[in-house]
Write a protein that binds this DNA or RNA. Structure first.
Length: 116
DNA sequence: AAGGTGACTAACA
DNA sequence: ATGTTAGCCACCT
């Protein structure tokens, strides 16, 4: 079982109506400090559309995709379809309120996760 | 096999 | 709140 496979598994487990951070998923996949790697993996994943990639955002609640095929506009639309409220603050960046939509009900909760 | 590349982060200024 | 910086890490040459 590779790290990449574990990441796919973790992402697949994020409940509808909730989001998870890269760091959170890195932890679930067995590499607590591999947040950046998670982003890289999702970016290069072949069959990305088979998993709920839209539910993965950064620790500040912003949608941080740069992939041209999966732009923030699309992610925002998918999240809204999930029932999540997506805001558009100052600089046009889409944002989700983590205090409200962050996935907290998972096995390893509490390890080092802090919801600001 | 060594070096480059980011859908990342926490810590500061 | 906004901008920078230095670690971090699995992948891909």
């Amino acid at each position: 079982m590779t790290f990449q496979e574990r990441v796919v598994e973790a992402v697949s487990q994020i409940p509808v109506g909730q989001v998870a951070t890269y760091g959170q998923l890195a932890g679930l996949a067995g590499s607590p400090r591999g947040a950046r790697a998670v982003g890289t993996i999702l970016h290069q994943l072949p069959e990305l559309d088979k998993i709920p990639w839209q539910r993965v955002i950064n620790s500040r609640g912003y949608l941080s995709t740069t992939c041209l095929e999966h732009p923030a506009e699309l992610q925002a639309a998918l999240l809204k379809a999930d029932g999540i409220i997506v805001n558009r603050p100052s600089r046009g960046l889409f944002r989700v309120d983590l205090r409200r939509f962050l996935w907290q009900d998972y096995p390893y909760r509490g390890s080092s996760l802090v919801v600001k």
